[in-house]
């Protein structure tokens, strides 16, 4: 089966074709090439972001220096959502076009997304203590982030419980898509619930009063998080390819030739 698929994908017809890279065999070296640029970009952007965040951005008038947590908190929260959407997107592509690689991408993204959700929760709590006086409030955003974390856990637990990779892929894809449909509903229900139970409604949006250097630092850190996420997902997808296709010729050749270290 893999033979017919790969030979169909191997013919790079006129011009650049996305589907050329839709098979693990052709994507593996491409992912390897993309890896170092991602790591370098992540490292440089992190350094630049931290420099701006700690040395250029001024101390906040109301929050003092505790606000410097947002340079990781906000990018992490953004990434956790973007990664879930990307995961659901790859799952949908996989179910529609029946491509193995899409499922592998989704599987590779999940742990990194879960890590971002965890980081967002952790830093949110540590930011909340000095700002709100408590580590945890049932704020709409924090609650939704927690639920997002559970959704990641569910996806990974389901995949881990199924031995057959084909079934694991598809079952995981289904729950990821159902979850993605649910995320906006969850967010609005929590927000609505929050307005009913007044008290926790502390505004997190410091954006209008934020100095441009603060915003710049945050955006640079967000770009670093993007680069890191792509790099981590590419490494993981390469590992998954080797694990799943380890009895195929291309993986065996690749490994015994010792090509492209990762």
């Amino acid at each position: 089966m893999s033979e017919t698929q790969s030979s169909a994908a191997r013919a790079p017809s006129s011009g650049f074709s996305l589907f050329y890279y839709a098979s693990p065999q052709t994507f593996f070296p491409l992912a390897g090439k993309l890896l170092w640029p991602c790591w370098i970009a992540a490292a440089l952007l992190t350094l630049a972001g931290l420099y701006i965040g700690f040395f250029v951005a001024p101390t906040d008038a109301t929050q003092g220096d505790s606000y410097r947590i947002i340079f990781i908190h906000v990018p992490a929260a953004w990434m956790s959502m973007v990664v879930y959407l990307a995961m659901a997107f790859w799952c949908a592509v996989g179910l529609v076009f029946n491509t193995r690689l899409s499922f592998m991408m989704a599987t590779a993204l999940a742990p990194t997304g879960a890590i971002w959700a965890f980081v967002a929760l952790w830093t949110g709590a540590l930011w909340g203590k000095p700002t709100w006086g408590t580590y945890w409030v049932w704020d709409a955003r924090l609650t939704s982030e927690l639920i997002l974390f559970f959704l990641y856990c569910g996806y990974m637990a389901l995949q881990a419980a199924i031995d057959d990779p084909r079934r694991a892929d598809r079952a995981g894809a289904l729950i990821a898509i159902v979850g993605a449909v649910n995320v906006p509903i969850i967010y609005f229900s929590v927000k609505w619930w929050n307005t009913l139970h007044q008290g926790a409604s502390v505004s997190l949006t410091a954006a209008p009063t934020m100095a441009t250097t603060m915003l710049t630092g945050m955006l640079v850190m967000a770009l670093a998080a993007w680069a890191y996420t792509i790099g981590a997902a590419l490494v993981r997808v390469r590992a998954i390819m080797i694990e799943r296709e380890r009895s195929t010729d291309w993986v065996r050749k690749l490994v015994s030739n010792g090509d492209s270290k990762a």
């Binding site: 101390t59 003092g64 220096d65 505790s66 410097r68 947590i69 990781i72 908190h73 992490a76 742990p111 990194t112 890590i115 965890f118 980081v119 952790w122 830093t123 540590l126 930011w127 203590k129 000095p130 890191y228 981590a232 490494v235 993981r236 390469r238 590992a239 080797i242 990762a262």
Partner: peptide, 29 residues
């Protein structure tokens, strides 16, 4: 500015989690 504990625990745990992921990835590979 007195918030050292909160700021450094945030950054520290984030760094630790990312380091853990990188180690886990290279081991898996």
């Amino acid at each position: 500015g007195g918030y050292g504990f909160f700021v450094w625990t945030s950054y520290g745990v984030t760094a630790a989690v990312i380091a853990f992921e990188l180690i886990a990835l290279s081991r898996r590979m």
